[in-house]
Write a protein that binds this DNA or RNA. Structure first.
Length: 677
DNA sequence: CCCACGTGTCATTCC
DNA sequence: CCGGAATGACACGTG
């Protein structure tokens, strides 16, 4: 980009799937032993792998492999590393998924520490080892530290040669082997007794650190679906700036017994998110390249990617949920993209896909007993950790800002977590989006009166303040309906938030009317507001349906056009074939005419017919035209076609002519009527 | 000024 | 019969 030239806008497209794809491809290559340049020997077993992958994941391998330039290096691991511990780690290196059982978790932990495996310790072992081993001396020391502190340390982490630093940035050089050894030595003293009480059957659990490990901007599922959520509210989130649960609704729907706790965090950062929206939109709208990153860039990056504040440009949502959930801001879109990927959450939290196995499942349907009744406490905790582990700071914020009313209302909890969704355009078709469904009704029930001023988006809580004319016009148009509405609200002085009116169920609405003993003016106003609001949303749905219908019909038209195209092509093809046949037949007849006596009127007639446009034809062979081979011909002494054919093509020759049927009739007639020359 | 488009509202119909 | 949803028609603001 020229400095002197006119300022040009630089946009950044960041693939949400690229990193995951690369990792998956590497795994495939490893499975096929393609491009593998290193053999790792563990306990007499050999594992083929890519040195770059190993080096990038493990400080031990980094040191061992970067110091050698020879191809096809063989690395023999010391006895401290076992196959039991190494194999899952190797798998993790290529898949970001760690498969473990309570039996092998300690071994994996030990090997991971020895090898200086990054991205696992804090996110995984600190919690899992003590949980699964019931001893966990090693981790106790660390976990005794407050989560906030730990998080702070992580966020302050710098490249240090002194030890494994799982959360270090990519620019950092992995710790050296001595550090790995040091880590291993620490671990050895920390090994937990294996006689821990059984917590469950040998269920294998899976920790998926894809978003963390690959540092992609997007968590990518195996089925190709993108998820934004995990990095939006991933473990890297600084606790001070953002409460993860606010961005990630899944925390709020945790199917654990801590469900209520999680709600508390929802209130923490809504303001942050919403306040940043404008900036974010501006950022995405145009302009601003990313070099060097501004504070704002970093700020945004911290929202979207956690505190790894590498400037990679504004993160564009990579998936398209907008059809289902039309949004008004790119950020919302991104967030919602994350929501769209919910099915994968089930992978994270538990093997039991019941937690969230369908987009169709609404949050309100999720209750702790839905999914956790058959688990031991430890299992549940582990599952929770796997789900919450991506947001380690969350727990520290729990119970701190939980509004009492949100606890008191069991159903309200679901809604209270989603007031950030108010910035989405729900109007288009709330029913189309499983995540928005049912939100409107719950949402405003929990929003207190104090939220009225801030979140007054008109009488419909589902209306986007961006799209809502009622809101957007208020600033410029004093006569707008919203303003008069607001004035009316002030006039009638309702004892409850006006946005509740439309979101309530009818029963609740009537009960409220009963309870509040409104004046006739208030009553009229409230009913009017409710009616208009409902109708507004209905109109929006109706229009959305119309549009959908139009799109569908357009698609069908396209399809039919292509079918028509194909039929036309076939038609032309057939036409050409017919022409070919006609020409060949014509040539054949001409040759017949040459050979036959010029008196043969049948042949001439045949030639006439061949050259004419007669679509009908019959098969005629010298031996198979009994109608022509009657005694009449012989009686008249005429050279009938049959005789002609028989003469022209002696026995043995196979001649099959496709001649016009009319020709045959004509030929017979002429044979009968015409006098012999 | 005109026009297309988006949106809110009203009236009506349907379920 | 009532309420809610759906929808056509209209009005209005905006670019």
């Amino acid at each position: 980009m020229s400095v002197d030239g006119p300022r040009t806008s630089v946009f950044t497209f960041q693939s949400a799937v690229h990193s995951h794809h690369v990792l998956r491809s590497l795994e495939e290559l490893r499975e096929k032993e393609l491009l593998c340049d290193v053999t790792v020997e563990v306990e007499r077993r050999s594992f083929r792998a890519h040195s770059s992958v190993l080096a990038s994941c493990s400080g031990y391998f980094y040191t061992r492999l970067t110091n050698h330039s020879q191809a096809n290096l063989t690395v023999r691991l010391p006895d401290e590393v076992t196959v039991e511990g190494f194999e899952p780690l190797l798998q993790f290196a290529y898949t970001a998924k760690l498969h473990f059982t309570k039996e092998n978790i300690l071994e994996i932990h030990r090997c991971a520490q020895f090898l200086g495996f990054q991205n696992l310790d804090k996110a995984c072992f600190e919690f899992l080892v003590p949980k699964l081993s019931d001893g966990g001396g090693a981790s106790k020391k660390v976990t005794s530290k407050s989560k906030n502190q730990a998080s702070h340390d992580e966020s302050q982490a710098i490249c240090s040669p002194n030890g494994p630093n799982p959360e270090t940035d990519e620019d950092c050089v992995p710790q050296d082997a001595s550090a790995a050894m040091q880590a291993a030595s620490v671990t050895s003293s920390a090994e937990s007794p294996k006689d821990c009480p059984p917590i469950s059957n040998d269920k294998e659990m899976q920790l998926d650190l894809s978003p963390l490990y690959t540092r992609s901007t997007s968590y990518h599922m195996d089925d190709g679906q993108d998820q934004f959520c995990l990095q939006n509210c991933g473990p890297q989130l600084p606790s001070s700036s953002l409460a993860a649960a606010e961005v990630c609704p899944f925390l709020s729907i945790s199917s654990t017994s801590d469900n209520e706790k999680l709600h508390s965090s929802a209130a923490d950062c809504g303001g942050d998110i919403l306040a940043m929206e404008d900036e974010f939109q501006k950022e995405l709208a145009v302009d601003m390249h990313c070099e060097p990153p501004t504070d704002k860039d970093l700020n945004i990056a911290s929202i979207t990617k956690g505190h790894f504040d590498q400037c990679e440009g504004p993160v564009m949502p990579s998936t398209d949920c907008t059809q289902l959930c039309p949004l008004n801001s790119a950020q919302s879109s991104g967030v919602l993209d994350g929501i769209s990927g919910t099915p994968d959450l089930s992978n994270i939290g538990t093997e039991d896909n019941r937690v969230f196995d369908s987009n169709e499942q609404t949050f309100s349907e999720l209750t702790p007993k839905d999914c956790c009744t058959e688990r031991s406490m430890e299992e549940r905790e582990v599952a929770e950790h796997l789900a919450k582990g991506f947001w380690p700071d969350l727990s520290s914020t729990l119970n701190e800002q939980l509004p009492l009313d949100s606890i008191d209302q069991p159903s309200a909890g679901n809604g209270s977590d989603f007031h950030w969704l108010k910035h989405l355009d729900l109007g288009a078709a709330p029913d189309d989006c499983p995540f928005l469904r049912d939100l409107s009704s719950n949402n405003t029930q929990t929003s207190g009166r104090d939220t009225l001023s801030k979140e007054d988006t008109g009488d419909s809580p589902c209306m986007s303040p961006i799209n809502s004319r009622e809101n957007s016009e208020c600033e410029s148009d004093g006569d707008c309906t919203q303003c008069s509405n607001s004035e009316q609200v002030q006039e009638v002085d309702l004892p409850f938030p006006v946005e509740q009116i439309s979101s309530m169920t009818r029963r609740a609405f009537l009960q409220m009317l009963k309870r509040e003993e409104l004046t006739p003016e208030q009553l009229e106003f409230v009913q009017d507001v409710r009616r208009r609001s409902k109708n507004r949303m209905a109109a929006q749905r109706c229009r959305k349906r119309k549009l959908d219908c139009i799109y569908r019909l357009e698609g069908e038209i396209k399809k039919l056009r292509s079918v028509k195209e194909k039929l036309l092509q076939d038609h032309n093809q057939l036409k050409l074939s017919i022409e070919d046949v006609r020409q060949s037949l014509s040539g054949l007849c001409q040759s017949l005419c040459m050979d036959a006596s010029p008196q043969s009127e049948q042949v001439q007639a045949m030639a006439r017919y061949v050259s004419s446009d007669c679509p009908t034809s019959v098969l005629l062979t010298p031996m198979a035209s009994p109608s022509l081979a009657g005694p009449d011909q012989d009686t008249h002494g005429n050279s009938s076609l049959d005789t002609f054919l028989a003469d022209t093509y002696p026995e043995g020759d196979t001649v099959a002519l496709r001649l016009p049927a009319a020709f045959l009739q004509d030929s017979v007639q002429s044979t009968v009527t015409d006098p012999a020359p």
